[in-house]
Design a binder for these strands. Sequence first.
DNA 1: GTTCGTTACGAACGTCGTTCGTTACGAACA
DNA 2: TGTTCGTAACGAACGACGTTCGTAACGAAC
Lengths: 245, 245
Amino acid sequence: MAKSPGEPRPSTPATPVSRRTRPAKAALSADALVSAALAILDADGLEAVTMRRVAQALDTGAASLYVYVANRDELLALVYDRVLGEIALPTVAAVGEPFPHWRAELRTLIRTAITVLGAHRKIAGVALGDVPTGPNALALAEAILGLLAGAGIDDPTRSLALDLINLHITAAAVEESAYADKAGEGQSEESAVAAMDETFGRLSAADYPHLVSMRDTLTAGSGDERDAWGIEVLLNGILATPAHG
Amino acid sequence: MAKSPGEPRPSTPATPVSRRTRPAKAALSADALVSAALAILDADGLEAVTMRRVAQALDTGAASLYVYVANRDELLALVYDRVLGEIALPTVAAVGEPFPHWRAELRTLIRTAITVLGAHRKIAGVALGDVPTGPNALALAEAILGLLAGAGIDDPTRSLALDLINLHITAAAVEESAYADKAGEGQSEESAVAAMDETFGRLSAADYPHLVSMRDTLTAGSGDERDAWGIEVLLNGILATPAHG
DNA sequence: GTTCGTTACGAACGTCGTTCGTTACGAACA
DNA sequence: TGTTCGTAACGAACGACGTTCGTAACGAAC
């Protein structure tokens, strides 16, 4: 990259070759930054999304990015909202109207959200804590609320349920992408399971009777099955637990 | 604390003043690193836990830490397990025996875990994805499994429930500490709520009917209430959702 | 008293996020 | 047409990061 830092700037440049000499250079914009950052994220992971790397992809310098984005965290928040935009949202009944298919729709929505977020490395981690308020985050929240309303759930319970569902989506997505990362890093999925199995095998049955007795069960089951079960637990639990319980 | 870096090492040191000249210097150890790291974590947050800073607290150089710890991530994993050790664990019935108080105990355990983890900044974030296998993490898992067994839940369901509960604990803890961080950063909790309220106030009722209609409800309720409700949802949902659905 | 393996550590490498002062541009105006 | 001027763009630099390397200091063993 940077050439030798020795020459401090030629006082009489032979050619005043500005970068603008290059003809068709797309204008910078926040959207362009997000696209570049997302591409790097998918290719090399969250920590590879550095300001320098994004700038390089856009054929410019890192300093130029700060015109469109306050800092790296803001850029990542924008990337997160862009990813949320990939989630297909159901059309939802109007306020006050029941919606019979709410359960199937909500199940699919949560599932899709986890899958989509999980497919983009650990980007979901940026949402843990920073209540996201991007347009796509709001649209997702609106859809979830609509489906819960269609189920006839009252306002206070719906508010709690929205938070819980959002929390579960982001957490499950982070976990899912963490697994995928590990599988891609060299160790196969099987070797990861084997390592876990070995950890349990080493445990003393006196200290950890339940863990040892469940050794086989703990490492069984695919991630998809666990995801699906978790969603059912959430839905069943929400229906069974009115606020002020 | 390094002195001025100007002199590159005197060829004939007037005093061969080694750091060992200092008399009572506690010996380094992994435990000492973890203690120092935890103190910095609590005082200044996760990102302040740098190798240099930990070394400084131990009156040594950053390079010395790598004798006891492979890298920063491993140190953070150790810190995480240390924090898990603060969680009071219930004594649990033997395998096969029912345990009538399982629900109250499990509720308290989950609540305590979230509170303890949440009290140590965003340390819980290091556990999202990296299935923790430290001694305290195993003990916590054993306790949860024991309580679930006391409830008479079958093996496959218990395995799924353990994962789900762990996921919820870590996610809820991260969120809780994120709130606390924000409150400590200057903006009070009220101003954070006010900002959120304003965000909702700006929304068009045509685009986000449910969000707008629930504006008041969404910002109501304390974090503790939300936590408690989430735990009930989990417990009710687990009971209502046997594996193989 | 000398050797030897281990622990400790200063210095350095490459990278990061971010800021600063300056340059180059294109539209507005004379 | 010629000039001005706000702003986008950028190279260089700052301070800090994780980590590695070669060397120095130590305690134990002989």
